[in-house]
Design a binder for these strands. Structure first.
Lengths: 143, 143
DNA sequence: TAATATGTAACCAGTATGATTACATTGTTG
DNA sequence: CAACAATGTAATCATACTGGTTACATATTA
């Protein structure tokens, strides 16, 4: 997992689009007020989500963004991959010493371990859809 | 998962200590040559591992570090927690707008999701011990 | 044609990371 | 006891990344 807030904000953005599914497109300005950030930050995320095919945007008057698919068909894993580029496992750029038995063999082992950890995280996110998020929000509203 | 290499290097360091279990203590200088980094970087990690009770260090001539426990009793989760402080879920510092239905409710939902993702990653690391790492290294050597 | 929205580039301040130097402290050994 | 060799840690530095902001070209609609 990257140490930034892009995923969290992207889910917030998508949640807004999900709850506003029947309404006219949401502008980056409107969404930014809900997130409490700058509209450009929202547009950057929407651009990434659009390239991943999760969202559609329209320019001009009465423009804005809408979900491209059924919320039940969009997983949080897709959102994560859309906004956070895969940078590979966090290994030091400097290669270890091949003259040491550990240095000579640890690299692929670490890559495997870090890959498995990341896969576990992704499996979790794959099991959650935007429909689940919307349901959780509605449940909290009805308290 | 943090976006740094501390965990990877810490596992490398511990793997060295595991393979040298029957030998005299390893110096930070020696380990640094295997990792291919600066001895101070190694000492910082050894210091954190020591505070977590995974490693013991001795000053002075013929000093150095050794594993504090059986390699089969040290999990990668312990190593991860020792060298990477828990910074909590990566949420924006700016709170969302409580006047928006999404902004008012998304925070605890995001916290839950990010917590579940992190828990999945930790479950994976909990299942791997230093003995497994040592075995993997030996298996690669015997090719 | 005027108004409004997206799409992006450019820039900035704040922060994290890892490498490095420096030095005090501790322990060993001759 | 004196010299040496190791850890422990503070301080500094270059690099990189993040998120916020301004600016402006482009597209779309009324």
């Amino acid at each position: 997992m990257a140490r930034n807030c892009r995923f969290a904000v992207a889910v917030h953005v998508c949640a807004v689009l999900t709850l506003r599914r029947e309404d006219p497109p949401a502008t980056s300005d409107w969404i930014a007020k809900s997130v409490n950030t700058n509209p450009v930050v929202v547009r950057r995320l929407l651009s990434a989500l659009g390239k991943a095919g999760l969202v559609q945007s329209q320019r001009g008057i009465s423009g804005g963004s809408t979900l491209a698919r059924d919320p039940a068909a969009i997983t949080l894993l897709e959102i994560s991959r859309a906004v956070d580029a895969d940078e590979g496992p966090p290994l030091p750029q400097q290669e270890p010493n091949p003259a040491c038995p550990v240095g000579a063999n640890i690299r692929p082992i670490l890559t495997d371990i870090l890959g498995r950890a990341e896969a576990a995280r992704e499996r979790e996110l794959h099991g959650i859809t935007l429909a689940d998020i919307a349901a959780a929000i509605r449940a909290r509203q009805d308290l």
